[in-house]
Design a binder for these strands. Structure first.
Length: 249
DNA sequence: AAACGTATCAACCGCTGGGGT
DNA sequence: TACCCCAGCGGTTGATACGTT
């Protein structure tokens, strides 16, 4: 029953990648490009599955990745986008060149969620928490027969709005939230951000170029990449990318 | 200094949807 | 139309770094 595994896992390595593995994968992709991820580990001589290689490349090795902590300006943008798209991390990440969906997802789960809770906002619905609780209580009062699990399921459905792509496309076109947010939700989010800005928790002078920093990988000078690959020190430190913007401009 | 708790993030797992046959 | 394969996605886990007692 079920699908066959994406690859024969016997003899395949798992867990953290070594510098040598990174080096091999980087070298292979830059020399050969990516046609089929399943073939990449075989051709590159890596004891990994294609999926693992793909993830490593996307989340760590891609030369156009932006390194360093997520700025407050980026954070603000993430919250606004999350209010609109929900947990569609790749969609959100597409607004941040150089950031990965995994990075944004992790940042959301570990930091932003908490921040919103402190600010009195429900990280799922982006509603003020009290209001949300009241609504829930009201709802429970009316529908005593329905189980709490059913309600959770409904919330889940609303929040995920998974791939009812038609709906999404429509609401995106109309400039509405595909996440089930109405004007009230969005304005409450905006109010919080305005108050944050007023209280200078945000740095208004934040350089907008930090948000959308780096161009696309095909623009990278080939010799720069090769130099980077050949240099063992760059495999140990990502500082080599700190001045990527200067190189690209 | 050691033990414990918490936060962070890289990596994995399983599901989904698109494309090809 | 049905099936298969694959890339991509989002949720979850586990290792480790960091902070606190």
């Amino acid at each position: 029953m079920g699908r066959q595994p994406c690859c024969d896992k016997r003899g395949l390595k798992r867990g953290p990648w070594t510098i040598e593995e990174d080096h091999k994968l980087m070298n292979f992709i830059l020399n050969n490009g990516i046609q089929c991820w399943r073939l990449v580990p075989k051709l590159a001589g890596l004891p990994r599955c294609g999926k693992s290689c793909r993830l490593r490349w996307i989340n760590y090795l891609r030369p156009d990745l932006k390194r360093g902590a997520i700025t407050e300006a980026e954070e603000e943008m993430i919250i606004r986008l999350h209010a609109r798209f929900g947990n569609r991390w790749s969609k959100i990440a597409s607004h941040f060149p150089g950031r990965t969906d995994n990075e944004i997802k992790n940042h959301w789960n570990t930091r932003i969620k908490k921040k919103l809770k402190v600010l009195g906002l429900d990280p799922v619905t982006h509603n003020p928490i009290e209001q949300h609780e009241n609504c829930k209580a009201k709802h429970e009062g009316i529908q005593q027969s329905s189980s709490s699990r059913e309600q959770e399921d409904n919330l889940e459905l609303n929040s995920h709005d998974n791939s009812s792509s038609k709906d999404n496309q429509m609401s995106e076109r109309e400039g509405k939230s595909s996440f089930g947010l109405d004007e009230t939700n969005l304005s409450s989010i905006n109010q919080v951000w305005e108050s944050l800005e007023a209280g200078s928790m945000l740095k208004p002078e934040a350089d907008p170029s930090n948000v959308f920093p780096v161009g696309i990988d095909e623009d990278l000078p080939a010799d720069f990449l090769q130099q980077w690959i050949d240099s063992p020190s760059h495999m140990l430190s990502w500082d080599g990318f700190n001045n990527l913007e200067e190189i690209l401009l």
